[in-house]
Simulated scan of single mutants.
Amino acid sequence: MPTATTSCVFPLTAVGPVADWATEKARELPANVELSFLLAAEDAPGVPDGPWPEVVVVTATAFADSHTEAVGALRPLRNCPLSERPLSRRRDEPTSLAALYDASMNLWPEKHRYAADTLWSHEDYASLLAKLGDAVAEAPSGKSFVLAPVSPVSREDESLRNMAFSVLGESYVVPYAVWTDPAHDDVNVHWLRDAMRAVEPYGTGHYIAEADLTADPSRARRSFTAADWQRLRSLRAEYDPQGLFFSYLSA
Rank of each mutant, 00 (worst) to 15 (best):
T5W: 04
T5M: 07
S7P: 04
L12F: 11
T13P: 01
T13V: 11
A14F: 04
A14W: 08
V18Y: 03
E28F: 06
E28L: 15
F37A: 04
F37H: 02
L38C: 07
L39A: 06
A41R: 15
E42T: 15
P45D: 08
G46W: 03
V47I: 14
W52N: 00
V55I: 14
V56P: 05
V58R: 01
S66E: 05
T68L: 10
R75Q: 14
R75M: 11
L77W: 05
N79V: 15
C80T: 08
E84D: 13
E84C: 11
E93S: 08
P94T: 09
S96K: 05
L97P: 03
A98R: 12
A99Y: 05
M105H: 11
N106C: 11
L107P: 03
P109E: 09
K111I: 09
K111L: 13
K111S: 14
H112Y: 13
H112A: 14
H122R: 07
H122Y: 05
E123H: 09
A126T: 00
K131D: 14
L132Y: 03
V136P: 03
V136E: 02
G142W: 09
K143Q: 13
L147R: 00
A148H: 03
P149N: 12
S151G: 10
E156C: 11
L160I: 02
L160A: 12
M163T: 10
F165G: 02
S166F: 09
V173Q: 02
P175E: 09
Y176I: 07
Y176E: 07
T180K: 15
N188C: 13
V189E: 10
D194W: 04
M196S: 07
A198F: 04
V199Q: 04
G203Y: 06
G203W: 01
G205N: 03
P217K: 11
F224Y: 15
A227P: 04
L232G: 04
S234M: 12
L235S: 10
A237L: 09
Y239F: 14
D240T: 12
P241I: 08
L244K: 15
